[in-house]
Design a protein around this nucleic acid. Structure first.
Lengths: 209, 209
DNA sequence: CTAACAAGTGAATCAGCATTCATTTTTTGT
DNA sequence: ACAAAAAATGAATGCTGATTCACTTGTTAG
């Protein structure tokens, strides 16, 4: 018996795997999932195409993981905002506002995560994470109801509306067409963010503020 | 000179074209855009695959037209509801309610139109029509503001939120995964519809009702 | 050093459909 | 009935990348 996987090797492999993931993510950040080909990722990561298949089942699996990593980071941030100070309404407002701002600041990636047409495998992740966001909001809404800052409501459904409203509102401004066509006047992002947040809060509270 | 396109021929061609469109639509109704292949459409319409290309530029073009036809019908219905009786708020409520009910009654087609991953050509149509819905809502909102049933607001943005909220709320219930997995309890559609409409109205009016 | 095995390579292969086009069939006016 | 022209046909072709795999290189333990 001669070869045995050693710690050093394990680390090196993990590193390579990570480098592949990073490069794949970079490609997505630059042009969305659509023009992120395996061969490109490979050359960027300085490995052969075949090597990618030693680390990932398939292209879909690789990009599903990219999607997961990127979205998990976002979900974490939203969760953090929702765990912050103030009553539930204030925390929801904060979370929505920050989410929108982050998206608008990294538009290609945000668009890829929110609206780009993708393979079913990746689409499945998207569905999962939309649910994840909705569940975070749902919990916050329930708290709001409990503490009295929100009126009683079907938290399950209104949280979904929240996710939809914010996602849809961002689709237009994030679309590559939008940023490329040169004729659409640049949206006033802060005003957009304000309206989105305003609408969502009213939807939840039934109160203008 | 021997052959000249005659009226009879023109009609027959129009008929064939329509039959192709109908069959394509039928395929979509049954399994979404994903498993609607040209060869299938052809055999269903009882023509050769090549024939389809005498009537349509390309697959994408064909399905873009299917999409257009189906969505235009929907947009028309929404427009009709928005032109109905009552104040703007009542009309918006009606339009949203009916839209959601129709979608839930024809889930596969609705899912294909709202959320299925599709070719860019078709996706472009989708974007266009989301705008179309939003614009209809936007006009109604402006009327509401004018007549005083709605508080002043950025109609442009709140209409987008409306579209997003309703679309997102329907994605889950419409997903093929949902209807196929057999373990998810059947959603109470009327309650879902009520929450969606309620949320949207509050979002617009700032008033519980 | 060497045997035993793992990891890496990238050119060749494959797959799945859309699309084409040489051929056949149908239509039309005379 | 015939020739000119259009329309229909569907088997063959083409495209685009993902995926494979025979081979090379690197690693390990004795």
């Amino acid at each position: 018996m001669a070869y045995r996987e050693t710690e050093k090797m394990r680390q090196r492999k993990a590193l390579a795997r990570q480098r592949i993931l990073d490069c794949a993510q970079l490609r997505v950040t630059e042009g969305g999932f659509r023009n992120a080909q395996i061969s490109q990722v490979a050359s960027q990561a300085e490995v052969a195409t075949g090597t990618i298949y030693r680390h990932f089942e398939s292209k879909e699996e690789l990009f599903a993981e990219v999607f997961r990593a990127a979205t998990e980071r976002e979900v974490g941030r939203v969760a953090k905002d929702l765990a912050g100070d103030g009553d539930a309404v204030e925390r929801l407002a904060q979370a929505l506002r920050h989410f929108a701002r982050r998206a608008l600041r990294a538009p290609t990636m945000a668009w890829a995560l929110i609206a780009e047409p993708v393979d079913p495998r990746v689409e499945a992740e998207r569905l999962r994470y939309r649910r994840a966001y909705a569940e975070l909001f749902e919990a916050a809404i329930r708290e709001g109801v409990r503490e009295g800052s929100l009126p009683a409501q079907e938290a399950r459904h209104s949280s979904t509306c929240l996710v939809g409203a914010i996602a849809e509102s961002l689709v237009g401004p994030l679309s590559p067409a939008q940023s490329t066509d040169g004729k659409t006047p640049p949206t006033d992002y802060e005003s957009l963010v304000n309206t989105i947040v305003g609408f969502c809060l009213q939807g939840l509270t039934g109160t203008r503020r």
